[in-house]
């Protein structure tokens, strides 16, 4: 059983958005800091750093997770997905992102990457949510700009037109 000693930077490997990446982290380094400062992605935003605001939400092996409540060494070997995984290689926004844009699901955008990742995980489990269920899920995120109404409209639009509720052609 390996022990990772404090104040030493240990190698941490992830499959980040489908690509292998490696960096180094002391045991106390949060996954949110590792992704931002060690790997260099820009979508893992830190709002409260104690698990309340949801801005740092990412997927770890497909499970929705607060990156600020996870240590990088805990995620060693895992598949991590961030909002960078949503748009395609040419930068074309995903259908969910386009729905957010269309319905004013964001304003300043700080909370948005975490919310998009929560929705991505949630709709896999529950592809046809009611509005109440959706709002309950969104209660795990703080957004100070939109009042959430645009987000709810965006997700329902996405479900109707691109997701599980879309009519077959």
């Amino acid at each position: 059983m390996p022990q990772l000693n404090r104040d030493v930077r240990h190698p941490v490997s992830l499959t980040l958005n489908g690509k292998k990446v490696q960096g180094h982290a002391e045991p106390r380094m949060l996954l949110s800091d590792f992704l931002t400062h060690e790997i260099g992605i820009t979508s893992c935003h830190v709002g409260c750093e104690h698990g309340v605001c949801g801005a740092c939400t990412v997927l770890i092996d497909g499970n929705v997770s607060r990156a600020c409540l996870t240590f990088a060494v805990q995620a060693d070997g895992a598949a991590v997905d961030t909002a960078e995984s949503l748009a395609d290689d040419e930068g074309e926004l995903s259908a969910l992102q386009q729905a957010f844009k269309k319905h004013h699901g964001l304003q300043c955008g700080y909370c948005t990457p975490g919310i998009l990742m929560s929705i991505t995980a949630y709709l896999k489990e529950k592809p046809k949510p009611t509005e109440d269920e959706l709002r309950d899920m969104l209660s795990g995120h703080l957004c100070r700009c939109t009042g959430y109404v645009g987000m709810v409209r965006a997700v329902l639009d996405y479900c109707e037109n691109s997701g599980a509720g879309a009519k077959a052609e």
Binding site: M1, L4, N5, R6, E26, R28, D33, H50, Q74
Partner: peptide, 21 residues
């Protein structure tokens, strides 16, 4: 808000966890 330093042990089994503790 960053935690203070600590050593990290990923226990592979219940026995390991109990022995380390």
């Amino acid at each position: 808000m960053k935690p203070a330093s600590f050593d990290y042990v990923r226990a592979a089994s219940q026995e390991e966890a109990v022995e380390t503790l």
